[in-house]
């Protein structure tokens, strides 16, 4: 596992007003890794992903993708950079003004300049990959259940054959069975496509299923980073408390912000 990491974060800091969210995040992700960042609500998991995507600009630190500095990219360079990525959003974030197939084909048509006819064919293929038939293609996203929306979101994330996929809380808001189905879909997708995956979740069962590495974010820093299999024997009290979902332990929930 040597060589240039796919994604490397060094000392990434980000604050909103006076609230410091990321306080020097260091993380390097090797090609083909499926890493999960776990942590409580409001610990900066989403902010980390948004910094890598350039939706948010970090206050300090460096983010390198395949050895190239990517903070401060803009215009065409940024569009080109973002073509490497696919992202599944927490609420699926489907465009509700467009039918399902156009949601999946959106990046192909707008970002890659593929013809609508060809993009529709690809969209149908990807929908089939996530277990959705042609019958949903012309529905509007609002007509789908939460689980189906997540599947469409997944199909959209993999539509343009990205090298890196981000999953933002892929199982939040789903029933346990649907959550497991989505987990399996993510695990097989990542394996079959050979992509690098970065997920954020606070669902430990999901983390075990979809990742080979786990990093825990607490108070704006990565406090533990290791193989998923070793997670249970880490000896780290913070991680142990989080895994077992116990109210007692070193992590005190800040109810007031």
């Amino acid at each position: 596992m040597n060589g240039v990491p796919k994604i490397e974060l060094r000392g990434v800091k980000k604050s909103f007003g006076r609230k410091l969210v990321l306080d020097g995040v260091n993380l390097s992700i090797q090609p083909g890794d499926s890493i999960v960042i776990i942590g409580g609500s409001g610990t900066g998991k989403s902010v980390t992903i948004k910094c890598v995507l350039g939706i948010l600009r970090p206050d300090a630190g460096s983010i390198k993708v395949e050895g190239q500095e990517v903070t401060g990219l803009h215009g065409r360079n940024r569009d080109a950079y973002l073509r490497k990525f696919g992202m599944l959003f927490q609420g699926a974030a489907l465009f509700d003004s467009l039918p399902v197939w156009e949601n999946v084909a959106f990046g192909l048509i707008q970002g890659h300049g593929i013809s609508r006819r060809r993009a529709r064919e690809i969209a149908m293929e990807k929908l089939a990959k996530v277990g959705l038939g042609a019958d949903v293609a012309n529905l509007s996203p609002a007509e789908l259940s939460g689980g189906m929306q997540k599947r469409v979101g997944l199909a959209r994330a993999i539509a343009a054959d990205p090298e890196i996929i981000f999953f933002d809380e892929p199982t939040t808001g789903l029933d346990p069975i649907m959550a497991d189905i989505i987990n399996n879909l993510i695990a097989t997708t990542v394996r079959d496509l050979g992509v690098t995956a970065l997920s954020i979740t606070h669902d430990i069962a999901s983390a075990r299923k979809i990742s080979n590495r786990v990093a825990m974010l607490y108070k704006g820093k990565i406090i533990w980073d290791g193989a998923t299999a070793e997670m249970d024997h880490s000896g780290n009290p913070y991680l142990d408390q989080f895994i077992h979902g116990s109210a007692v332990g070193p992590i005190k929930m800040e109810v007031r912000q």
Binding site: G54, I55, D79, M87, Q90, A93, L94, F95, G107
Partner: peptide, 21 residues
């Protein structure tokens, strides 16, 4: 609504400038 449901961020990740679109 597109902002709070992250649809505007989704546009960015699909290589589409949200202001332009």
């Amino acid at each position: 609504t597109m902002r709070v449901t992250e649809q505007i961020d989704a546009l960015t990740t699909l290589s589409t400038n949200p202001v332009k679109y």
